[in-house]
Amino acid sequence: DESNASGDSGEQKEAEGKTYNFKLAHIAPPDHIWNEAAKKFAEELETRSDGRMKMDLYPGGQLGGEPDMVQQLETGSLDFGFITTAFLTSRSDAFSAWFAPFLFDSYEAAFEAKGSDVSKEILATLDDQGLRALDIFFSGNRTMMFREKIETPEGMKGLTLRVTPSPALQDWYRYLGANPESISLPDVYQAAQTGVIDGMEMDLDAAVTSNFNEVTGYAAMTNHMVWPSVMIANGKNFDAMPEEDQKIIREAMAAASEYATMKRSSLEEEYVKTLTDRGMVLYDMDESLFKSYMEKFDEEYKAKDPLIKEFIETFRK
């Protein structure tokens, strides 16, 4: 079959008549908000291109984990992928900027920040790797979940916490005096159940779907970091497209990003209610308690990359 994505098959036709059969992959399960973003993106592409652009979706890491997907995006086996900034920091340090703690207090604020020049400059650091990082959407702000109620950052000293294996996230917990462990997601429930870990950094959707409320009874609603997903295209195929088609893609992505971010934001209350109904104790831990640790993070990370410095200085109030 001619499912190959690049659209070379349309060479005989007029440029505007070109048809595409794209492939998009991401690691989130089919019922996750990420997949809604993917479906929305596919819909928008189809309507905006009058049916010339079709897209096959590969959710749930069907084509592999993030290192695999990024490699496939480089070579063109894959046309689009949603990749976490947590992984992209291993490709370009500048993406750590998004993990500066307490920089944005809502999904809306983060969504607005993605339009800034410095955000675009960070995306552009992937250009020379054959990747076109075109847009960002936000889901799953970070909260802290514990087996016992922890009320201050000082209470976290010495605790073993499961944290996504990305240096910026892990460093933040080291600054807080905790021991970050990178246990793989399927093992987290059991590790928390049995006490291998004392808690974890997690988002509310994952807590709802994986029943983490059963093993960690307390959630500090810190919302201390945002969780950006970067929408990436294969560089070679994207650059080869006529400008109108590139524009269609950018607009479809922007629409999908807004749709997913705002939808996730509106679900926040529902998730809080679900977890409370299940007996989880959700409580606030005030941002001001973290002030000295934030300063430490800013100081360390501003020194790592001028773009991180610029990003933090632009958005730290």
């Binding site: 490699q71 992984f87 291993s90 490709r91 790797q129 240096p167 990178s182």
Partner: peptide
Amino acid sequence: QWVFSSSHQKSTSMR
């Protein structure tokens, strides 16, 4: 070819 084209990448934890 794959190894020689992997110059951009660092490991997620040890870097």
